[in-house]
Design a protein around this nucleic acid. Structure first.
Length: 259
DNA sequence: ATGGCATGCGTGGCATGA
């Protein structure tokens, strides 16, 4: 079973690449982030023609998540139960479902913007609510994983130059502590292998030749419980998909399981 | 010293991203 997570940075802008990649990679379940569309605009018909069902949680030009599966899509939950509001509203940043033998979440953790910004406090609250929402499944015996764009580099090695991020979000101790608390529910970081260079970065800024210079970050993560992590046979970052015109600034993270 | 790129919305220049 091949499961992947990919921040597509607009599913409508990425649709030709997305459809081609699903076919060429043979992915069974894809966790999508930053759909940047309404639920009506989501390309459910095009995906259905390829044999995939979709569960979408989206409301317009920002955020938006989905689960796309060809191995079943049941018991869909849209949103983060108990999640905090930002600017008076719940944002579409989480969707979960059961896909065959495995329960999965697709999450788009708030960016945080700046350490002094309200968005940063919101990010930490959001992660706390995520921990509470997944704790029972994380501790369970059914294969379970939270996949997505966590907007946190778990260690200093997960950014191309730690010094550049001094004073910035994505690398702070409270963010990493929130990730550690999430792991303590029973989840472990399923680290993919890179296809090139030493470290499995998953995001490279569009600017300043970030990708050619491999100035990347590992912020797209797969957090699986024991039954999930124990079934993992391989995992990699498909950096080929970051190449060329019309690429997302994130590459897909692919995990193969024997379930 | 600054911005540099891409997206949506909507046709000009913001807001957002990390």
């Amino acid at each position: 079973m091949r499961i992947a997570t990919w921040n597509v940075n607009s599913i409508t802008a990425r649709l030709p690449r997305l459809l081609a990649w699903l076919e060429s990679s043979g992915t069974d379940v894809l966790c999508v982030q930053e759909t940047k569309c309404t639920e009506e605009q989501f390309p459910s018909d095009e995906l259905r023609e390829l044999g995939y069902e979709s569960a979408v949680h989206a409301d317009g030009r920002w955020n938006g998540v989905a689960l796309v599966s060809r191995v079943g899509l049941d018991d869909v939950v849209r949103g983060l139960p108990g999640g905090p509001e930002y600017a008076g509203a719940q944002e579409p940043r989480a969707v979960s479902a059961t896909c065959g033998p495995v329960r999965l979440w697709s999450v788009y953790v708030p960016n945080g913007r700046e350490i002094t910004h309200d968005h940063y406090a919101y990010k930490l609250k959001w992660l706390g609510a995520l921990k509470d929402a997944v704790a029972a499944d994380a501790a369970g015996s059914r294969p379970f994983a939270v996949l997505g764009d966590f907007n946190i580099a778990p260690t200093d090695d997960d950014v191309w130059d730690r010094a550049v991020f001094e004073g910035s979000t994505h690398v702070t101790e409270p963010e990493r502590a929130a990730l550690a608390a999430l792991r303590e529910t029973g989840l472990s970081d399923v680290v993919p292998r890179p296809l090139k260079y030493a470290h499995p970065f998953t995001y490279w800024d569009y600017r300043q030749l970030g990708f050619p210079k491999n100035r990347g970050m590992r912020i797209d993560l797969v957090y699986g419980n024991g039954a999930f992590a124990g079934a993992v046979k391989d995992g990699y970052v498909d950096r080929e998909e970051r190449k060329g015109k019309g690429a997302s600034d994130h590459a897909p993270v692919v995990v193969d399981l024997e379930l």
